[in-house]
Nucleic acid binder design. Structure first.
Lengths: 196, 196
DNA sequence: GACTCCCTACCTACTAGTAGGAAGAATGCG
DNA sequence: CGCATTCTTCCTACTAGTAGGTAGGGAGTC
Protein backbone atom coordinates (compact mmCIF):
# COMPACT_ATOMS: atom_id res chain seq x y z
CA UNK A 1 0.00 0.00 0.00
CA UNK A 2 1.42 3.32 -1.08
CA UNK A 3 0.52 6.42 0.84
CA UNK A 4 -0.70 9.52 -0.92
CA UNK A 5 1.69 12.47 -0.85
CA UNK A 6 -0.42 14.28 1.66
CA UNK A 7 -0.56 11.37 4.08
CA UNK A 8 3.12 10.68 3.62
CA UNK A 9 3.84 14.29 4.56
CA UNK A 10 1.72 14.03 7.68
CA UNK A 11 3.47 10.84 8.66
CA UNK A 12 6.94 12.30 8.18
CA UNK A 13 5.94 15.47 10.01
CA UNK A 14 4.71 13.42 12.93
CA UNK A 15 8.01 11.61 13.11
CA UNK A 16 9.96 14.85 12.99
CA UNK A 17 7.85 16.47 15.69
CA UNK A 18 8.09 13.42 17.92
CA UNK A 19 11.88 13.34 17.66
CA UNK A 20 13.06 16.93 17.15
CA UNK A 21 10.06 18.92 18.36
CA UNK A 22 7.81 21.41 16.64
CA UNK A 23 10.22 24.35 16.56
CA UNK A 24 13.19 22.30 15.44
CA UNK A 25 11.57 20.76 12.38
CA UNK A 26 11.34 22.79 9.21
CA UNK A 27 9.53 22.59 5.91
CA UNK A 28 12.92 22.08 4.32
CA UNK A 29 13.51 18.97 6.47
CA UNK A 30 10.05 17.71 5.74
CA UNK A 31 10.43 18.31 2.01
CA UNK A 32 13.77 16.59 1.82
CA UNK A 33 12.72 13.56 3.79
CA UNK A 34 9.61 13.25 1.62
CA UNK A 35 11.35 13.57 -1.75
CA UNK A 36 9.43 16.66 -2.69
CA UNK A 37 10.14 20.40 -2.93
CA UNK A 38 9.46 22.84 -0.16
CA UNK A 39 6.92 24.81 -2.17
CA UNK A 40 5.00 21.61 -2.80
CA UNK A 41 4.72 21.02 0.91
CA UNK A 42 3.24 24.51 1.17
CA UNK A 43 0.78 23.55 -1.54
CA UNK A 44 -0.60 20.78 0.67
CA UNK A 45 -0.24 22.62 3.96
CA UNK A 46 0.01 26.38 3.45
CA UNK A 47 1.14 27.15 7.01
CA UNK A 48 3.24 25.11 9.40
CA UNK A 49 0.74 25.82 12.13
CA UNK A 50 -2.08 24.38 9.99
CA UNK A 51 -0.08 21.25 9.31
CA UNK A 52 0.63 20.68 12.98
CA UNK A 53 -2.92 21.40 14.06
CA UNK A 54 -4.34 19.01 11.49
CA UNK A 55 -1.76 16.40 12.37
CA UNK A 56 -2.58 16.51 16.07
CA UNK A 57 -6.33 16.55 15.58
CA UNK A 58 -6.13 13.58 13.21
CA UNK A 59 -3.89 11.85 15.71
CA UNK A 60 -6.44 12.45 18.42
CA UNK A 61 -9.18 11.03 16.21
CA UNK A 62 -7.17 7.90 15.50
CA UNK A 63 -6.23 7.57 19.11
CA UNK A 64 -9.83 7.87 20.20
CA UNK A 65 -10.86 4.97 18.02
CA UNK A 66 -7.85 2.94 19.14
CA UNK A 67 -8.90 3.43 22.75
CA UNK A 68 -12.43 2.40 21.88
CA UNK A 69 -11.07 -0.70 20.16
CA UNK A 70 -9.06 -1.60 23.25
CA UNK A 71 -12.17 -1.34 25.36
CA UNK A 72 -14.01 -3.58 22.94
CA UNK A 73 -11.22 -6.15 22.69
CA UNK A 74 -10.57 -6.57 26.40
CA UNK A 75 -13.10 -6.71 29.17
CA UNK A 76 -10.67 -6.75 32.08
CA UNK A 77 -9.26 -3.48 33.34
CA UNK A 78 -5.78 -4.90 33.70
CA UNK A 79 -5.68 -6.13 30.10
CA UNK A 80 -7.05 -2.82 28.84
CA UNK A 81 -4.40 -0.87 30.69
CA UNK A 82 -1.63 -3.10 29.43
CA UNK A 83 -2.86 -2.64 25.87
CA UNK A 84 -2.93 1.11 26.49
CA UNK A 85 0.62 1.12 27.80
CA UNK A 86 1.68 -0.90 24.78
CA UNK A 87 0.80 2.12 22.63
CA UNK A 88 3.55 4.08 24.35
CA UNK A 89 6.02 1.27 23.85
CA UNK A 90 5.09 0.93 20.18
CA UNK A 91 5.82 4.58 19.58
CA UNK A 92 9.04 4.37 21.52
CA UNK A 93 10.26 1.36 19.59
CA UNK A 94 9.59 3.25 16.39
CA UNK A 95 11.97 5.86 17.74
CA UNK A 96 9.38 8.40 18.82
CA UNK A 97 8.33 10.18 21.98
CA UNK A 98 4.66 10.45 22.92
CA UNK A 99 3.32 13.13 20.57
CA UNK A 100 1.71 15.35 23.12
CA UNK A 101 4.43 14.92 25.66
CA UNK A 102 6.88 16.18 23.07
CA UNK A 103 4.65 19.11 22.22
CA UNK A 104 4.04 19.88 25.86
CA UNK A 105 7.76 20.48 26.37
CA UNK A 106 7.71 23.40 23.94
CA UNK A 107 4.38 24.72 25.03
CA UNK A 108 5.51 28.34 25.34
CA UNK A 109 6.86 28.32 21.79
CA UNK A 110 3.73 26.75 20.31
CA UNK A 111 1.03 28.61 18.40
CA UNK A 112 -2.09 29.08 20.49
CA UNK A 113 -4.19 26.70 18.40
CA UNK A 114 -1.84 23.83 19.21
CA UNK A 115 -1.71 24.44 22.93
CA UNK A 116 -5.41 23.93 23.29
CA UNK A 117 -5.28 20.73 21.25
CA UNK A 118 -2.44 19.34 23.33
CA UNK A 119 -4.40 20.07 26.45
CA UNK A 120 -7.44 18.32 25.00
CA UNK A 121 -5.34 15.29 24.21
CA UNK A 122 -4.18 14.87 27.78
CA UNK A 123 -7.76 15.20 28.92
CA UNK A 124 -8.70 12.43 26.50
CA UNK A 125 -6.08 10.16 28.08
CA UNK A 126 -7.14 10.98 31.60
CA UNK A 127 -10.84 10.54 30.93
CA UNK A 128 -10.36 7.21 29.23
CA UNK A 129 -8.09 5.99 32.01
CA UNK A 130 -10.53 7.15 34.68
CA UNK A 131 -13.29 5.31 32.87
CA UNK A 132 -11.34 2.08 32.64
CA UNK A 133 -10.23 2.32 36.25
CA UNK A 134 -13.77 3.03 37.40
CA UNK A 135 -15.03 -0.10 35.69
CA UNK A 136 -12.09 -2.06 37.04
CA UNK A 137 -12.87 -0.96 40.57
CA UNK A 138 -16.54 -1.77 40.12
CA UNK A 139 -15.59 -5.25 38.92
CA UNK A 140 -13.31 -5.73 41.90
CA UNK A 141 -10.19 -5.99 39.77
CA UNK A 142 -8.56 -2.79 40.95
CA UNK A 143 -8.28 -1.21 44.37
CA UNK A 144 -9.78 2.20 45.00
CA UNK A 145 -7.47 3.46 47.70
CA UNK A 146 -6.61 6.85 46.27
CA UNK A 147 -9.49 7.89 44.04
CA UNK A 148 -10.24 7.27 40.39
CA UNK A 149 -8.86 10.52 39.03
CA UNK A 150 -5.64 10.21 40.96
CA UNK A 151 -5.11 6.73 39.64
CA UNK A 152 -5.64 7.97 36.08
CA UNK A 153 -3.09 10.70 36.68
CA UNK A 154 -0.71 8.21 38.23
CA UNK A 155 -0.87 5.85 35.27
CA UNK A 156 -0.46 8.59 32.70
CA UNK A 157 2.42 10.19 34.60
CA UNK A 158 4.37 6.96 34.82
CA UNK A 159 4.04 6.36 31.09
CA UNK A 160 4.92 9.90 30.03
CA UNK A 161 7.73 10.11 32.54
CA UNK A 162 9.01 6.67 31.68
CA UNK A 163 9.07 7.57 27.99
CA UNK A 164 11.12 10.70 28.61
CA UNK A 165 13.57 8.99 30.92
CA UNK A 166 13.97 6.12 28.48
CA UNK A 167 14.37 8.59 25.63
CA UNK A 168 17.17 10.46 27.37
CA UNK A 169 18.96 7.28 28.39
CA UNK A 170 18.25 5.56 25.07
CA UNK A 171 16.89 2.50 26.81
CA UNK A 172 13.56 0.79 26.40
CA UNK A 173 13.08 -0.62 29.90
CA UNK A 174 12.16 2.63 31.64
CA UNK A 175 9.18 3.17 29.32
CA UNK A 176 6.92 0.59 30.94
CA UNK A 177 8.81 -0.25 34.11
CA UNK A 178 7.11 2.28 36.37
CA UNK A 179 3.72 1.65 34.81
CA UNK A 180 3.90 -2.08 35.47
CA UNK A 181 4.97 -1.53 39.04
CA UNK A 182 2.04 0.77 39.65
CA UNK A 183 -0.39 -1.54 37.94
CA UNK A 184 0.73 -4.43 40.12
CA UNK A 185 0.11 -2.29 43.19
CA UNK A 186 -3.38 -1.43 42.04
CA UNK A 187 -4.34 -4.95 41.16
CA UNK A 188 -6.44 -6.83 43.68
CA UNK A 189 -5.21 -10.19 42.46
CA UNK A 190 -1.63 -9.21 43.28
CA UNK A 191 0.20 -11.80 41.26
CA UNK A 192 3.89 -12.08 41.96
CA UNK A 193 5.90 -9.33 40.31
CA UNK A 194 8.33 -10.36 37.65
CA UNK A 195 11.78 -9.02 38.37
CA UNK A 196 13.60 -7.94 35.21
CA UNK B 1 22.08 41.23 45.45
CA UNK B 2 22.63 42.02 41.82
CA UNK B 3 23.74 39.28 39.48
CA UNK B 4 26.70 39.78 37.16
CA UNK B 5 25.85 39.97 33.48
CA UNK B 6 27.18 36.52 32.84
CA UNK B 7 25.13 34.91 35.60
CA UNK B 8 22.07 36.88 34.60
CA UNK B 9 22.44 35.54 31.08
CA UNK B 10 22.71 31.98 32.32
CA UNK B 11 19.66 32.44 34.48
CA UNK B 12 17.59 33.89 31.64
CA UNK B 13 18.81 31.20 29.27
CA UNK B 14 17.77 28.52 31.73
CA UNK B 15 14.31 30.00 31.95
CA UNK B 16 14.00 30.17 28.17
CA UNK B 17 15.16 26.59 27.70
CA UNK B 18 12.83 25.32 30.41
CA UNK B 19 9.83 27.01 28.84
CA UNK B 20 10.45 27.16 25.07
CA UNK B 21 13.13 24.53 24.63
CA UNK B 22 16.66 24.70 23.30
CA UNK B 23 15.82 25.08 19.61
CA UNK B 24 13.10 27.63 20.15
CA UNK B 25 15.18 30.09 22.16
CA UNK B 26 17.52 32.43 20.33
CA UNK B 27 20.37 34.73 21.20
CA UNK B 28 18.10 37.57 20.11
CA UNK B 29 15.49 36.52 22.71
CA UNK B 30 18.16 36.14 25.32
CA UNK B 31 19.72 39.51 24.53
CA UNK B 32 16.41 41.32 24.61
CA UNK B 33 15.26 39.77 27.86
CA UNK B 34 18.63 40.63 29.43
CA UNK B 35 18.80 44.26 28.28
CA UNK B 36 21.94 43.70 26.29
CA UNK B 37 22.89 43.38 22.59
CA UNK B 38 23.15 40.10 20.78
CA UNK B 39 26.85 40.53 20.04
CA UNK B 40 27.47 41.08 23.74
CA UNK B 41 25.86 37.77 24.53
CA UNK B 42 28.31 36.23 22.06
CA UNK B 43 31.12 37.96 23.94
CA UNK B 44 30.23 35.99 27.07
CA UNK B 45 29.21 32.79 25.33
CA UNK B 46 30.65 32.55 21.82
CA UNK B 47 28.46 29.61 20.74
CA UNK B 48 24.94 28.69 21.74
CA UNK B 49 26.07 25.14 22.27
CA UNK B 50 28.74 26.31 24.73
CA UNK B 51 26.22 28.33 26.65
CA UNK B 52 23.84 25.41 26.95
CA UNK B 53 26.55 22.93 27.86
CA UNK B 54 27.92 25.22 30.56
CA UNK B 55 24.45 25.93 31.82
CA UNK B 56 23.56 22.29 32.17
CA UNK B 57 26.85 21.29 33.75
CA UNK B 58 26.58 24.12 36.27
CA UNK B 59 23.00 23.08 36.91
CA UNK B 60 24.15 19.54 37.57
CA UNK B 61 26.82 20.78 39.97
CA UNK B 62 24.28 22.85 41.91
CA UNK B 63 21.83 20.01 41.89
CA UNK B 64 24.42 17.60 43.20
CA UNK B 65 25.10 19.78 46.20
CA UNK B 66 21.41 20.33 46.76
CA UNK B 67 20.88 16.59 46.88
CA UNK B 68 23.75 16.24 49.31
CA UNK B 69 22.22 18.95 51.47
CA UNK B 70 18.90 17.12 51.49
CA UNK B 71 20.62 13.98 52.64
CA UNK B 72 22.31 15.92 55.41
CA UNK B 73 19.17 17.75 56.51
CA UNK B 74 16.89 14.73 56.70
CA UNK B 75 17.71 11.28 58.00
CA UNK B 76 14.46 9.60 57.04
CA UNK B 77 14.00 8.33 53.51
CA UNK B 78 10.46 9.62 53.29
CA UNK B 79 11.46 13.15 54.28
CA UNK B 80 14.38 13.08 51.86
CA UNK B 81 12.16 12.02 49.00
CA UNK B 82 9.59 14.67 49.79
CA UNK B 83 12.31 17.32 49.82
CA UNK B 84 13.53 15.96 46.49
CA UNK B 85 10.05 16.12 44.98
CA UNK B 86 9.71 19.65 46.26
CA UNK B 87 12.50 20.66 43.86
CA UNK B 88 10.27 19.73 40.94
CA UNK B 89 7.38 21.69 42.41
CA UNK B 90 9.60 24.73 43.03
CA UNK B 91 10.65 24.80 39.40
CA UNK B 92 7.10 24.31 38.24
CA UNK B 93 5.80 27.14 40.39
CA UNK B 94 8.43 29.38 38.89
CA UNK B 95 6.88 28.53 35.54
CA UNK B 96 9.50 26.04 34.40
CA UNK B 97 9.68 22.43 33.32
CA UNK B 98 12.39 20.13 34.70
CA UNK B 99 15.51 21.18 32.80
CA UNK B 100 16.57 17.80 31.57
CA UNK B 101 13.08 16.63 30.84
CA UNK B 102 12.67 19.65 28.58
CA UNK B 103 15.98 18.94 26.85
CA UNK B 104 15.20 15.27 26.53
CA UNK B 105 12.16 16.11 24.39
CA UNK B 106 14.35 17.68 21.72
CA UNK B 107 17.13 15.14 21.99
CA UNK B 108 17.43 14.56 18.25
CA UNK B 109 17.84 18.26 17.59
CA UNK B 110 20.45 18.72 20.33
CA UNK B 111 24.20 19.02 19.79
CA UNK B 112 26.02 15.86 20.77
CA UNK B 113 27.73 17.45 23.77
CA UNK B 114 24.38 18.21 25.34
CA UNK B 115 22.90 14.78 24.82
CA UNK B 116 25.58 13.16 26.91
CA UNK B 117 25.12 15.72 29.67
CA UNK B 118 21.38 15.21 29.74
CA UNK B 119 21.93 11.49 30.01
CA UNK B 120 24.38 12.01 32.88
CA UNK B 121 21.84 14.18 34.67
CA UNK B 122 19.21 11.47 34.62
CA UNK B 123 21.75 9.02 35.92
CA UNK B 124 22.52 11.41 38.75
CA UNK B 125 18.85 11.46 39.70
CA UNK B 126 18.50 7.70 39.51
CA UNK B 127 21.65 7.00 41.49
CA UNK B 128 20.72 9.41 44.25
CA UNK B 129 17.21 8.01 44.44
CA UNK B 130 18.49 4.45 44.51
CA UNK B 131 20.84 5.41 47.32
CA UNK B 132 18.12 7.02 49.38
CA UNK B 133 15.74 4.15 48.78
CA UNK B 134 18.40 1.62 49.70
CA UNK B 135 18.99 3.33 53.02
CA UNK B 136 15.26 3.63 53.55
CA UNK B 137 14.79 -0.07 52.98
CA UNK B 138 17.70 -0.90 55.28
CA UNK B 139 16.13 1.27 57.99
CA UNK B 140 12.79 -0.47 57.52
CA UNK B 141 11.04 2.70 56.35
CA UNK B 142 10.42 1.58 52.79
CA UNK B 143 9.30 -1.71 51.31
CA UNK B 144 11.55 -3.55 48.91
CA UNK B 145 8.97 -5.38 46.84
CA UNK B 146 10.17 -4.45 43.36
CA UNK B 147 13.87 -3.77 43.63
CA UNK B 148 15.84 -0.63 44.41
CA UNK B 149 16.52 0.46 40.86
CA UNK B 150 12.94 0.02 39.78
CA UNK B 151 11.77 2.13 42.68
CA UNK B 152 14.19 4.87 41.70
CA UNK B 153 12.89 4.74 38.14
CA UNK B 154 9.32 4.75 39.41
CA UNK B 155 9.84 7.83 41.54
CA UNK B 156 11.65 9.76 38.82
CA UNK B 157 9.08 8.80 36.18
CA UNK B 158 6.16 10.00 38.26
CA UNK B 159 7.82 13.37 38.85
CA UNK B 160 8.91 13.93 35.26
CA UNK B 161 5.60 12.68 33.92
CA UNK B 162 3.60 14.67 36.45
CA UNK B 163 5.50 17.82 35.50
CA UNK B 164 4.73 17.38 31.82
CA UNK B 165 1.08 16.60 32.37
CA UNK B 166 0.72 19.55 34.71
CA UNK B 167 2.56 21.75 32.25
CA UNK B 168 0.24 20.85 29.39
CA UNK B 169 -2.88 21.27 31.50
CA UNK B 170 -1.52 24.34 33.28
CA UNK B 171 -2.32 22.90 36.66
CA UNK B 172 -0.07 22.37 39.65
CA UNK B 173 -1.73 19.33 41.21
CA UNK B 174 -0.48 16.73 38.73
CA UNK B 175 3.15 17.57 39.47
CA UNK B 176 3.33 15.80 42.81
CA UNK B 177 0.10 13.83 42.83
CA UNK B 178 1.48 10.62 41.35
CA UNK B 179 4.69 10.88 43.35
CA UNK B 180 2.85 11.13 46.64
CA UNK B 181 0.63 8.19 45.78
CA UNK B 182 3.64 6.06 44.97
CA UNK B 183 5.50 7.15 48.06
CA UNK B 184 2.54 6.20 50.23
CA UNK B 185 2.54 2.77 48.66
CA UNK B 186 6.22 2.30 49.36
CA UNK B 187 6.05 3.45 52.93
CA UNK B 188 5.96 0.74 55.56
CA UNK B 189 4.20 3.00 58.06
CA UNK B 190 1.28 3.40 55.63
CA UNK B 191 -0.35 6.44 57.10
CA UNK B 192 -3.79 7.25 55.79
CA UNK B 193 -3.69 8.95 52.39
CA UNK B 194 -4.90 12.49 52.28
CA UNK B 195 -7.50 12.89 49.57
CA UNK B 196 -7.19 16.22 47.77
C1' DG C 1 49.19 49.14 27.67
C1' DA C 2 46.28 45.45 28.11
C1' DC C 3 41.99 43.65 29.38
C1' DT C 4 36.93 43.61 29.98
C1' DC C 5 32.57 44.71 28.46
C1' DC C 6 29.54 46.25 25.40
C1' DC C 7 28.44 48.40 21.14
C1' DT C 8 27.15 49.09 15.74
C1' DA C 9 27.35 46.93 11.59
C1' DC C 10 27.69 43.17 9.11
C1' DC C 11 27.92 38.14 7.24
C1' DT C 12 25.99 33.70 5.61
C1' DA C 13 22.63 30.23 6.08
C1' DC C 14 18.20 29.10 6.89
C1' DT C 15 13.23 30.12 8.20
C1' DA C 16 8.20 30.33 6.66
C1' DG C 17 5.82 31.69 2.98
C1' DT C 18 4.60 33.47 -2.13
C1' DA C 19 4.31 34.03 -7.33
C1' DG C 20 3.72 32.03 -11.30
C1' DG C 21 4.27 28.45 -14.57
C1' DA C 22 4.60 23.39 -16.59
C1' DA C 23 2.61 18.81 -16.96
C1' DG C 24 -0.99 15.73 -16.44
C1' DA C 25 -5.45 14.05 -15.05
C1' DA C 26 -10.30 14.93 -14.75
C1' DT C 27 -14.18 17.03 -16.50
C1' DG C 28 -17.69 19.33 -19.55
C1' DC C 29 -19.61 19.58 -23.96
C1' DG C 30 -20.55 19.69 -29.01
C1' DC D 1 -15.45 10.46 -29.97
C1' DG D 2 -12.47 15.01 -30.07
C1' DC D 3 -11.25 19.07 -27.89
C1' DA D 4 -11.00 22.68 -24.68
C1' DT D 5 -11.20 23.89 -19.90
C1' DT D 6 -10.27 23.38 -15.30
C1' DC D 7 -8.08 21.37 -11.32
C1' DT D 8 -4.34 19.17 -9.10
C1' DT D 9 0.24 18.56 -8.23
C1' DC D 10 4.55 19.79 -8.46
C1' DC D 11 8.22 22.78 -9.90
C1' DT D 12 11.84 26.99 -10.12
C1' DA D 13 12.65 31.26 -8.40
C1' DC D 14 11.87 34.48 -5.26
C1' DT D 15 10.61 37.33 -0.90
C1' DA D 16 11.28 39.25 3.93
C1' DG D 17 12.70 38.01 8.28
C1' DT D 18 15.52 35.67 11.62
C1' DA D 19 19.03 32.32 12.99
C1' DG D 20 23.89 31.91 14.87
C1' DG D 21 28.07 34.12 14.49
C1' DT D 22 31.96 37.73 13.33
C1' DA D 23 34.75 42.17 12.75
C1' DG D 24 36.21 45.89 14.74
C1' DG D 25 35.80 49.94 17.60
C1' DG D 26 34.83 52.87 21.96
C1' DA D 27 34.95 53.45 26.93
C1' DG D 28 36.25 52.23 31.37
C1' DT D 29 39.41 49.63 34.55
C1' DC D 30 43.43 47.08 36.30
Amino acid sequence: MTLGTRDALLQRAEYLIRTRGYSAFSYADLAESSGIRKASVHHHFPKKEDLAALLVSRYIANFTSTLAAIKRADTQAQARLIAYAQLFLDGFENGMLPLCGALSAERSALPESLRATVCAFFDLHLNWLADVVREGVAAGELTDAIGIDRVALLLLSTLEGGSFVGWALQKTDPVLSAFHDVLATLSTSRQELARP
